[in-house]
């Protein structure tokens, strides 16, 4: 079997997997007790029976579950993600609108976390057992166990309320209403706190994995050989150890990018950032099933395919791994 066939098979498997995930999601969401109608009809007592009936009929909620699932798949194959109950707008529009806003946060912080985390991990490993290593490890441990929304609120209070050097929430300064280049600078300025929070939360895993990988490499025979040959420590770390140790963090990074499109629900909510996470949370709270399904579709596609890509990359990077 050639490599092409293998890739093709994996791609088909991934597509099938996405459909399985969607079926499970659809069923679970729709089997939840209660109905989205109550959110469309609002507070009890306000909506008349006629109104509720009209809503149920308009959205086809009176049809059995399997029929709705088939309709959903049929629409999906035609590229139609459905229509939001809440916003009365196509789901694809809602998602596309939020995607760049969210990716700016998640991808930037993923890259920052990867770079800073693995650099610090490498540094700590070189100074293993010393005070620097202990301090870094403790700090990372603290960040790893901090709830993200709490860290966000603390940073918000310190930098936004006490020091007053960063904005508290939102994406732009609505009072000023900047245009042109200033508009984008304004967005960047407002993104500092959420990106910092996300970076601090994600950094520890890169730190830990890199540090452990380097320590593992240090025990390898080739390190002893090179040291015996009198290779300079700097050279040894940069040329050999780093290259071997960077594979695991790269894997994590790839997987994390898969989740990037899903947004950061808690952080976006705390900082009033109008991204995908907010859209997902709003949709869950108001039972906007089509939007929830649309976002899950996107998440499952990105995650399934980023796993596939990481697998294929491994094959290229490590000659010992062979396709079967």
């Amino acid at each position: 079997m050639g490599m092409g066939t293998y890739i093709l098979r994996r791609v088909f498997q991934s597509i099938a997997l996405v459909f399985v995930i969607l079926t499970i999601n659809f069923t679970i969401i729709n089997l939840a007790p209660g109905s989205p109608v109550i959110f469309m009809a609002g507070q009890f007592g306000m909506a008349s029976k006629e109104y509720v009936e009209a809503v149920i009929k308009r959205w086809g909620l009176d049809k059995p579950l399997w029929e709705r699932l088939l309709i959903y798949f049929a629409n999906l194959l035609r590229g139609d993600l459905g229509y939001s109950y809440r916003y009365l707008a196509p789901v694809s529009d809602l998602i596309l609108e939020r995607l760049p806003i969210t990716l700016f946060l998640t991808v930037t912080s993923a890259v920052l976390a990867f770079i800073i985390g693995s650099t610090l991990g490498l540094y700590a490993a070189r100074h293993v057992g010393r005070k620097v290593d202990a301090a870094l490890t403790t700090t990372m441990f603290v960040f790893w166990s901090t709830p993200s929304f709490w860290l966000g609120i603390i940073l918000m209070i310190v930098f936004g309320i006490q020091l007053r050097i960063l904005p508290v929430s939102g994406m732009i300064n609505v009072r000023a209403g900047y245009t042109g280049v200033m508009y984008y600078l304004d967005i960047a300025y407002h993104a500092i706190l959420p990106i910092t929070t996300l970076t601090l939360i994600m950094m520890p895993q890169y730190f830990k994995i890199t540090r452990d990988a380097v320590l593992h490499q240090l025990k390898e025979d080739y390190v002893i050989t090179f040291r015996a040959m009198g290779l300079r420590e700097n050279e040894l770390f940069r040329r050999h150890i780093f290259r071997n140790a960077i594979l695991p963090p790269v894997t994590i990074f790839g997987l994390q990018l898969g989740y990037a499109a899903a947004g950061a629900v808690l952080i976006e909510n705390v900082f009033g950032w109008p991204g995908m996470g907010r859209l997902l949370l709003d949709s869950i709270l108001t039972r906007d099933y089509p939007v929830i399904m649309g976002i899950y579709l996107m998440i499952s596609i990105t995650v399934v395919f980023s796993i596939l890509i990481v697998d294929l990359l491994y094959m290229l990077l490590d000659p010992r791994i062979r396709y079967r």
Partner: peptide, 12 residues
């Protein structure tokens, strides 16, 4: 200005 989280809205 839309801030859904009650605590964040208060801080804002």
């Amino acid at each position: 200005k839309i801030v859904p989280d009650a605590t964040a809205a208060l801080q804002t």
